[in-house]
Amino acid sequence: MSNDQSQFIVEGKLADNERLKRESRNLRGTIEQDLKDDITGGFTADNFQLIRFHGMYQQDDRDIRAERAKQKLEPLQNVMLRARLPGGVILPHQWLAIDKFADEQTMYGSIRLTTRQTFQFHGVLKPKIKLMHQTLNAVGMDSIATAGDVNRNVLCTSNPVESALHLEAYEWAKKISEHLLPKTNAYAEIWLDGEKVKLLSRR
């Protein structure tokens, strides 16, 4: 192999995501204004993409999109959240907390497990989003940078009680996940009213 690094340099125009991040005031954008705007269930302009860096996708129920257009209603907008769960490890009290939230506050009342060793909430309406993040934070979880052009969740062979090596791998998964977090306090400011994010490694 040659030492020539030029093969890794991408020529041409940067993806729009790079502009968006640069202009986002460290991933803050105008998400807070959108949260206060109660005439729409969605996020506007760049915020639509930006919330992905906070672990959420804006979605709508496509099956009833045409029906709602006729009803002079906007699409039934909501968000999906993917939790940051290195190695897919969740404790019983954490599970009870997310089960309660899914049951009481989401459109579908369900928790969805994914092949990325984590879970997702689906069908969360805008007025419930802050509560969702605060619920996670209260039991030491978050969804920072689990979507967008980033690493998403860090996986490992998961059962840490299987062997010392498993446990070690899990500790590395947590460290890698936290190491790759964006260096911004935006998540805590927007969703937790400024309260510090309780990272797993620091509890």
Binding site: I39, K72, E74, L125
Partner: peptide, 26 residues
């Protein structure tokens, strides 16, 4: 309910965007 009963929602959103409706309180 917001998601079900916001009568003429898209019309009002348009009027707010155009600046014709200055305030819409729900």
């Amino acid at each position: 309910n917001f998601t079900q009963d916001f009568l003429y929602q898209v019309e009002w959103q348009g009027y707010v965007k155009d600046g014709l409706v200055d305030k819409l309180t729900l």
